[in-house]
């Protein structure tokens, strides 16, 4: 499988990259690690005239902490996220998700920004970021905008990113004390895309009830989405298996899986219930720890 021909540039700084995107609006595509884009190019499902490789752009691959949030550069690889102890201490869900993506080579090169911008409905980050109420930072020649992850994923391979923008950073609010999260992925085999994935981030209030909650689902809709019905059912509730089961069932009812080689929709709906339940339990366990 051979890609159709394209041109390639590797700008040295973000200003140049943004200028090129503006000049070649609609023809150019940003290349990060390449592990999402290259398979599409080889299948000729994407045939951009120009690839803008952002590997030389400095400062896009760090993981840092501010007073309010964790900031993950768009070019941080899955492996870097997996191995960052500081991040895992605050947001263990990030390690859960990073460790389940692809295989070691893919994790060495694939980046969170690339995965989020590509928006494969079976990719893991979009659901996790929605569960975390994360924000996505987009830069263009005209400036920077910060958009919530919820609402960013519009459809299969389609996001709110403009053709002239580069995704530069992910911002995740620092969880309050007594928080915990978990990502539970069901896969057919090591390295597979998710059959179903459930991301849960939970904060317990002083009364032991669920004060804040985010649930994101992978691979059971045209785009990964937040399971808002389940969130509504649980917010303010007393955590426990019975409540978790009910909420997981609500998440399942809200999902819109398709029949495919991973299984029929009926199976996937049942697995949404199971994976959401497991994620709720695990998140709760971590919130208590």
């Amino acid at each position: 499988m051979i890609p159709a021909a394209f041109d390639y540039v590797r700008p040295a700084d973000i200003g140049e990259a943004l200028r090129i995107l503006k000049e070649r609006e609609g023809e150019a595509k940003v290349l990060s690690g390449g592990y999402s884009l290259l398979p599409l190019l080889k299948l000729r499902l994407a045939q951009p005239a120009l690839l803008v490789d952002i590997q030389a752009l400095g400062g896009l691959d760090g993981i840092s902490r501010t007073d309010d949030d964790m900031r993950i550069g768009a070019r941080a690889t899955h492996r870097r996220i997996l191995e960052d102890d500081g991040l895992a201490a605050v947001l263990p869900i990030m390690r859960d998700a990073a460790g389940g993506i692809g295989d070691p080579q893919i994790r060495n090169w694939g980046t969170i920004g690339g995965s989020v911008a590509h928006a494969d409905p079976a990719a893991d980050w979009p659901a996790v970021l929605q569960a975390l109420h994360a924000s996505i930072v987009l830069r263009s020649a005209g400036g920077e905008r910060v958009v919530p992850a919820r609402g960013f994923f519009i459809d299969t391979f389609q996001t709110g990113i403009e053709a002239t923008e580069i995704l530069t950073e992910i911002r995740i609010p620092l969880p309050a004390p007594r928080s915990g999260g978990s990502y539970q992925k069901l896969e057919r085999r090591a390295g597979d895309f998710s059959t179903v994935g459930a991301a849960v981030q939970m904060t317990l209030g002083g009364d032991g009830r669920i004060a804040q909650l985010g649930i994101g689902l992978t691979a059971v809709g045209d785009a990964p989405f937040a399971a808002t019905h389940a969130e509504d059912a649980l917010r303010g509730a007393k955590p426990g298996d019975e409540m978790f089961r009910e909420a997981a069932a609500a998440a399942s009812r809200q999902s819109r899986p398709a029949d495919d080689s991973h299984g029929p929709a009926e199976y996937k709906r049942a697995m949404v219930t199971e994976m959401t339940f497991r994620a709720l339990r695990a998140a709760f366990g971590r919130a208590l720890a």
Binding site: L186, R188, T195, H262, G263, Y267
Partner: peptide, 16 residues
Amino acid sequence: MTPQKVWAILHEKGVA
């Protein structure tokens, strides 16, 4: 014997 096939059987038998 894929997970979905085994699950469907267990579901039909009222176990899953």
